[in-house]
Design a protein around this nucleic acid. Sequence first.
DNA 1: TTCTGTGAAAAGCTTCACAGCT
DNA 2: AGCTGTGAAGCTTTTCACAGAA
Lengths: 252, 252
Amino acid sequence: MTTTGEGTDHRAPAGPPAASADLPAATVRRLPEYLRALGALSESGVETVSSETLAAATGVNSAMLRKDLSQLGASGMRGVGYDVAALATHIAGVLGLTKDSRVAIIGLGHLGQALARYPGFSDRGFDIVGLFDADPGIIGRDLDGIRVRDVALLARAVRDEGINIGVIATPGAAAQHVADLLVDAGVTSILNFAPCVLAVPQGVVVRKVDLAVELQILSFHEHHKTLGPETAQYRRTGRQSAGPEDRLRRRR
Amino acid sequence: MTTTGEGTDHRAPAGPPAASADLPAATVRRLPEYLRALGALSESGVETVSSETLAAATGVNSAMLRKDLSQLGASGMRGVGYDVAALATHIAGVLGLTKDSRVAIIGLGHLGQALARYPGFSDRGFDIVGLFDADPGIIGRDLDGIRVRDVALLARAVRDEGINIGVIATPGAAAQHVADLLVDAGVTSILNFAPCVLAVPQGVVVRKVDLAVELQILSFHEHHKTLGPETAQYRRTGRQSAGPEDRLRRRR
DNA sequence: TTCTGTGAAAAGCTTCACAGCT
DNA sequence: AGCTGTGAAGCTTTTCACAGAA
């Protein structure tokens, strides 16, 4: 996503600070991983880290990590590495995590409830400010201090409460309707857990997570393992060296 | 999004018949989507479908769909399209869904419990046969008829009960240990929801789903919303999921 | 010396455009 | 006519390999 043939030929000479907008999609996908690994390092008291070490902690190639970071405008110190704290701050800034996002979850079946209570969201700067469902049996319930409201109130809540991310955890049949409500109310970022493709206008970003799809992909690999004994080469999963760095990771 | 340990495959030298093994990773990722759309079509009574229609239902380009299917060895009828039922059967076969997989979920916090009850798993041929946790307060509980067992019993259960997929939904700190248990017991397919990179031997496929990562990617796009929305790229409604995000696009 | 930043090459993925079957 | 199957082109992502800063 967001790719442009950039990277090398930045036309205007006097390059400003450096655009962190318009990064390659593949890079953006990896930034949260880097950020998480940096957080772990920071908690261990590490102050600087080499691309090699950080790459190992995130499962990528070190050259790619360096390229990602340089595209971001971040910079390390040759011969030394990257400053853990500064880099984390920089990445958080690029990801827009400096201000908390306001999230609504629509659909509070088992999955929606689990998402509502998932500590990883609030831990990483996402405020869950609205829970909505269409089932009268669920509306009015309290989940960790947030009351579930009728989905009919969604549009107003989006506007009044500054909600800018919608998480759809409804059954597939309701998902498009909910997406329409969100989009009409002005939400332009949607995370969709329903097993269906959503139609949304340009400018609205939808990311889809389908848990069953993940299992089916595993099934494929499982099914084809018997064939080509060593034709398929799975890179990266293998450990390269019981490096001293990976054993650390304590409390989140 | 999300993925880990994808194959970088080098095809075997001479390609005899037409293997459905060794498909490009990108193709494999789309197969479950095709299958879902075919299921929906089938329920609507549709018997044949064109690549254009099926592509629209899954949010991909029709040429790509055709290429995916031909790589699979499936074939349509020129001038007509694809037989819905036959194609669904074929894809299910390639994905190895003809025999049910046996799944264990380790870690039954909110997320694990939601996964244990997620109907999309059993609906699509995944039997959840084991639930494991380390917390005595959870061990012994019954979730939809399955009793949560002590994780100390995991290895034996894997062997005795033919478990071939492990789903890790523990906190990050416990995930590597659980992965080691699974691998030692012979599991070669792991779905990891814990926010950490797992080290596993070659041959073990790990897919990672990190819900917070998805939100952070949305945050990035939300944060960088600006300029040039004048690139009509996908007709009609927008695109879906981890699709191309484009913007500047030179004309040729 | 160590380790970053980056051209250049390689690999992979997607789209185009059209030949050719039904 | 309608639609598939596919070579070729274009684009993106990854990896290599090394110049050069600290």
